[in-house]
Design a protein around this nucleic acid. Structure first.
Length: 661
RNA sequence: GCCGGAGUAGCGUAGUGGUAGCGCAACCCCUUGGUAAGGGGUAGGUCGAGAGUUCGAUUCUCUCCUCCGGCACCA
């Protein structure tokens, strides 16, 4: 054991503020021993100059140390990684012959991938978890050994751990590898790990079983993955589980059913949504919004067919580059027709149908276009990922010198929409080609670079922050994607803004310049409201089904207290129907509940349907020409003249802005 | 597409080798009630589809469809 020495190179600040120093080569475990049993118990690890470090690795550099205790944020990732190890230990003990592969810490928890012929079943999870708790209780000590690469390969191969051996083989020759032991069980691992299995604590839970490909490649064998969640204490774990429950309540699939927004039928087909009357309201209001905003921006609307002949998709390069995403062709009189996966080719044909002067550029062609894509069956999810959808599409044909400014204008349109909906939880991704998979992208290096420069300049000038995503580009050019997360945590592209250098060639899209000759164009593909399907799915979750008044399928419900006031209630309803609304689908969407039920029951029903306004009318209101207004938060706004309420709800519908209460 | 799980009335669910219950919703009756479920009754199911095993299948087997959790895919 190293006590403090005379040539101190390593110093540590204890939780009480005191400093201790040690010689180089000391390990965190030795430091823990030196600082006394009380602290050693609290210490889960040590941190060196802000980097995570390993309690078993000799500290060679001059360094300032800090003890990591359970309370520290750094402890969390280590807990999760250690718990993954304990999971692997438990599984190998319970199911001999199971091979281990990898098991990292992830957001909220960890997983471990196993190779085993028999599938794990949901009933296995409690057994594995019980075994894990035994291993934690046993508090098995950890130690670290460094082996030469070749020894490690031979060792794991002898054990029958083919996957581990393969992993080590991918480490460069001549390098040593570290092996971590927890008791007798050991694994190739970079570390760091705690001093013993007992440090993990009790706040973990196995959550699900899944299939996963070895090394993330569908060509490889499929492994069995066990997921778990792990936290620093029970309180954190409980809070996490509660959060998951709350998120589930926002799931658009559940709310879509409860609020009768959309449905699916096996008789129609997977991924082909049926919009119900309530959902259609949202869809139409979104389209009205787009129509208004796009008119202000100089877009002109078109309408084009949902199918086209094979030749069009060869020309557009969809068949060479995007064939897998398209439905099989329809044979019509011996000729192949395809359901269109995108609207671009049709729009290009419209642009190409007439000659364009440089003076009239840019040309902005818009359509809420219905498309069909043969998405992988396993990827379908409610309205978030479908096979038939309607896109808020437009193509902007512009001169090269206009591209940057047009791109920025589209970004600003995005921003206006997002502000309107109060969407804040998103990020922008600059989607780039993957240089290792060049066959997925058209081979025009100079044009890729030029297009990228325009987008980057547009992003810098507009000041929007973004991340880069390799391998996310379209085959015809780079793009900015707007990324959101669904209630169950899956990430989706909700909107997109793309720059296309290819279409000018494939569709011979040109304008006549000042010099009288033809010049190429850039095409901006943009869908700030994405598809009706995905955008509505997102809005359902964003608002948890409680839409602002302008989007609410039913904006107000009249609730007569007794059938004696049904006539007056009907008068209230008619007044609302007749109130003019400038925006949207014109007129308010209201109904009346004349069921033979008590008012309390009717209020409850309206509340569950998340209707913004309940207008309770009884004999008092009828006598005074008033309505008693209750909002869905439960708040009672009191009695007000009918005209006062009409003015309020009209204002909300027209401004697309609810009055704060 | 791949691995695993699941489909019983509009929704949520119970159950069985001898063709099915319950709650909510729907409909009817009583009740005329002042801000989150009044009481009673009625109707509603080829138990996802097809085939096989069996005297007999919703139940067991197979195929398909659809959904769920992941993985892969997502121009």
């Amino acid at each position: 054991m190293s006590a403090p020495l005379s040539a101190p190179n390593v110093s540590i600040t204890l939780p009480d503020g005191k400093t201790m120093t040690f010689a180089r080569g000391v390990t965190g475990a030795e430091i823990a021993a030196a600082i006394g049993p009380g602290l050693a118990k609290a210490a889960l690890a040590v941190e060196v100059d802000g980097l995570e470090w390993d309690i078993f690795r000799p500290i060679e550099a001059d360094a300032r140390l800090r003890i990591i205790t359970r309370k520290d944020a750094q402890a969390l990732e280590m807990i999760r990684h250690d718990t993954a190890h304990v999971l692997a230990m438990a599984v190998q003990e319970l199911y001999p012959g199971t091979q281990v592969t990898i098991g990292p810490a992830i957001e909220d928890g960890f997983y471990y991938d196993f190779a085993r012929n028999e599938p794990f079943t949901p009933e296995d999870l409690p057994k594995i978890e019980a075994k894990m708790r035994e291993i934690v209780k046993a508090d098995l000590p950890t130690h670290r050994e460094v082996w030469p690469r070749e020894k490690a390969i031979a060792h794991f191969r002898d054990m029958g751990e083919q996957y581990k051996a393969e992993l080590i083989e991918s480490i460069p020759q001549g390098e040593d590898v570290s092996i971590y032991f927890h008791g007798d069980w050991h694994d190739l691992c970079r570390g760091p790990h705690f001093a013993s299995t007992g440090k993990i604590g009790e706040a973990f839970k196995l959550t699900k079983i899944a299939g996963a490909y070895w090394r993330g490649d569908a060509k490889n064998a499929q492994l069995q993955r066990i997921y778990g969640t792990a936290w620093r204490d029970q309180k954190e774990l409980d809070a996490h589980l509660l959060k998951l429950e709350e998120q589930e309540k926002r799931d658009h699939r559940r709310l879509g059913r409860d609020l009768e927004l959309f449905t699916f039928s096996p008789d129609v087909g997977a991924g082909l949504p049926l919009w119900m009357p309530n959902g259609m309201v949202i869809r139409q209001e979104l389209e009205f919004l787009a129509l208004q905003e796009e008119r202000k921006e100089g877009y002109r609307r078109v309408a084009t067919p949902h199918i086209a002949k094979e030749a069009l998709y060869y020309r557009s390069r969809h068949l060479p580059y995007y064939n897998e995403g398209m439905y099989s062709p329809l044979d019509i009189d011996g000729e192949n027709y395809y359901l269109r996966p995108m609207n671009c080719p049709h729009h290009h044909l419209i642009f190409g149908a007439t000659r364009h002067s440089y003076r009239e550029m840019p040309i902005r062609i818009a359509e809420y276009g219905q498309d069909y894509r043969y998405e992988a069956s396993g990827g379908l999810s409610g309205l978030m990922r479908v096979r038939g959808f309607c896109m808020n599409d437009a193509h902007i044909y512009c001169r090269y010198d206009q591209a940057k400014e047009e791109f920025i204008r589209v970004l600003r349109l995005h921003a206006r929409y997002y502000d309107l909906f109060g969407i804040k939880e998103y990020y922008m991704r600059l989607s780039l080609p993957d240089m290792n998979k060049l066959d997925k992208y058209v081979d025009e290096p100079d044009k890729w670079v030029a297009a990228l420069e325009i987008i980057k300049a547009a992003m810098n000038e507009s000041g929007y922050r973004y991340v880069e995503g390799k391998g996310e580009a379209a085959f015809y050019g780079p793009k900015i994607d707007f990324m959101i997360r669904s209630a169950i945590g899956t990430e989706y592209t909700i909107s997109t803004n793309q720059l296309d250098f290819l279409a000018t060639e494939t569709f011979n899209l040109k304008y006549i310049g000042e010099d009288g000759s033809e010049h190429p164009v850039y095409v901006i593909h943009r869908a700030p409201l994405g598809t009706h399907e995905r955008f509505t799915a997102f809005l359902i979750e964003h608002f948890a089904g409680a839409f602002p008044v302008w989007l609410s399928p039913i904006q107000a419900r009249v609730i007569p207290i007794t059938d004696k006031v049904n006539d007056y209630a009907q008068k209230v309803l008619n007044a609302l129907f007749e109130a003019p609304v400038v925006n949207g689908t014109a007129g308010l969407r209201v109904d009346i509940d004349t069921a033979n039920e008590r008012m309390q029951k009717k209020i409850r029903d309206a509340q569950l349907q998340k209707i913004p306004y309940m207008l309770v009318v009884g004999e008092r209101e009828a006598a005074e020409g008033k309505v008693a207004v209750r909002i869905r938060s439960g708040k009672d706004l009191g009695t007000m003249p009918l005209e006062t309420f009409v003015a309020r709800i009209r204002q909300e519908a027209e401004t697309r802005q609810d009055v704060a209460d």
